[in-house]
Design a protein around this nucleic acid. Sequence first.
RNA 1: UGGGGUAUAGCCAAGUUGGUAAGGCAGCGGAUUUUGAUUCCGUCAUUCGUAGGUUCAAGUCCUGCUACCCCAGCCA
Length: 565
Amino acid sequence: MDRNETNNKIEKDPSSFLQRIVEKDLNEGVYSRGICTRFPPEPNGYLHIGSAYAINISYNIAKKYGGEFNLRFDDTNPLKEDKEYVDAIIDDMKWAGFDPKDRIFYGSDYFQQLYDYAMELVKKGKAYVCDLSAEEIRQYRGTLTEPGKNSPYRDRIIDENVDLFTRMKEGEFKTGEKVLRAKIDMKSPNMNLRDPVIYRILHEAHYRQGNQWCIYPMYDYAHPLQDAIEGVTHSLCSIEFKDHRPLYNWTLEELEFNEPPKQREFGRMNLTGVITSKRYLRELVAGGYVDGWDDPRLPTLRGMRRRGYTPESIKHFLGEIGISKDESTVDVSMLEHSVREDLRDTAPSMMAVMNPLKVIIENYPNDQKELLEVQNHPKNPDMGTRNVTFSNTLYIEKDDFMEKPEKGFKRFAPGHEVRLRGAYFIQLTEIIKDDSGEITELRCTYDPETKSGSGFTERKPKATIHWVDANNAISAEARLYDKLIEEEALLKDKTLSWEERINPDSLKVLTEIKMEKALGEAKSEDKFQFIRQGFFTVDNKHTSGEKLIFNRIVPLKDSWKKGKK
RNA sequence: UGGGGUAUAGCCAAGUUGGUAAGGCAGCGGAUUUUGAUUCCGUCAUUCGUAGGUUCAAGUCCUGCUACCCCAGCCA
């Protein structure tokens, strides 16, 4: 029941300007073929939440109108691409619920066709071989406010261009020696139309095509053709490509495609405090500032997956934020809300202590041990129960105790009786401190009558707190951390003590310091300032014998940490 | 006057033949609670970047202005 409601929410379909465009085309019968969209990542990095946003848009349009959705690797630059990334991208898409099935294509597979089309342009006098150097081309291009000027090679005769372009392909020229340019308009106010380079010479092996080619097509030329070849109808991309649209259309028109695909743009999505730029992410990974593309602190799909986000929660989030023509910066609390909403009903709710404070129960027999049966979910008995051990030595969360409670503090303090969740009420008898005045231990008494489930109702504590049995807790604590990073050290820094390494706060500080280094000359500081560390708590750990297994880690609402007034 | 794009609450965002500002997040107040969670109830834009204009009626139409974003890769 609950799940169905959630699913309905996930499926819910906010109206968007893109849908209106598609519907209009459908009504007017613009295409004799079915709707087809595509997601065209360059395999040079891992998918992140921003990629998921883009995928979701195209995927949903295709799905909604009974069309096809293509995954096409936009792999026209041999310098940057690698199979590692194509495999990862496919995996991540499947995990996130955007399975491209058998509709996986590679732009580089069309190199021959792309070359043939280019030759057609050359023969039509619409493209020419240019001998200018990269620097000269830049100078000839003009500036934003000044028009460019024609290349001296612009008026080469067609036969010469055909010859030269053929020889470019044959490998007669060195890397960078010549380029093929579209002949459009050097005076256009749109820089993209000032005779853009459409082919370059690059004597480099391609991860997929090997050494078959030494000329490679540029994005602006290749993309519309790749779309057209695949029968794409709506080529949806982010807003910065808006200015490229005239070139997209120029290419398709010159080559006289019937029912050409149309490019339409949507605004980029940013998240507060989150880096969603492949370039920066790559830098963090390559520089060793994080543990890899799947570091739980990263907004990559893999990182989020390890952090505990479910595909459902990500889709729900994406559905919730909508689409617009303008760039947006969504508050990360919306994302967190989506996980909470999903995990609230599906994740067993367990007790965990991140920052332990020892509690000794003086009137509980030293050699006694008991098993308490605790519900796995506060509202859903179907999720069963588990047994937890209880003894005279426990750990509670440091933040759950205050020696001098602030006004409004409801949890453990001198004179405050609290309930240990699923166990007994306890009261404080003594605070033990070390030489520096740091609280190291609490001495307490428990009331056997208050045992959970006994029906005791005479007193009602203001708060219920989490605890763990110290016998399991130390190792549990270690495992918690180890599991979080899947048995690897998240921080390679062995100089840190074990305790520092499990403390999320020290982790946070360290991350920030490293981040500053990573910043270097990065242009936008605030983008880099924080990888969101957030508050971790374990929300789904199953006990199986003595072992704890953590499946999901959920960011808690801040109010839990802060307490409320 | 280089060109293009966007402006609705702290954030995201509906609003499409002009008819009297959806929803979500965050926040705030309260009730319930063996997680200060969850759940529940209430509250949160006299006004849509701004100044004018048209109209019985404007977020929607017109004009001027302002702010922000994108473009000078042989990257995508």
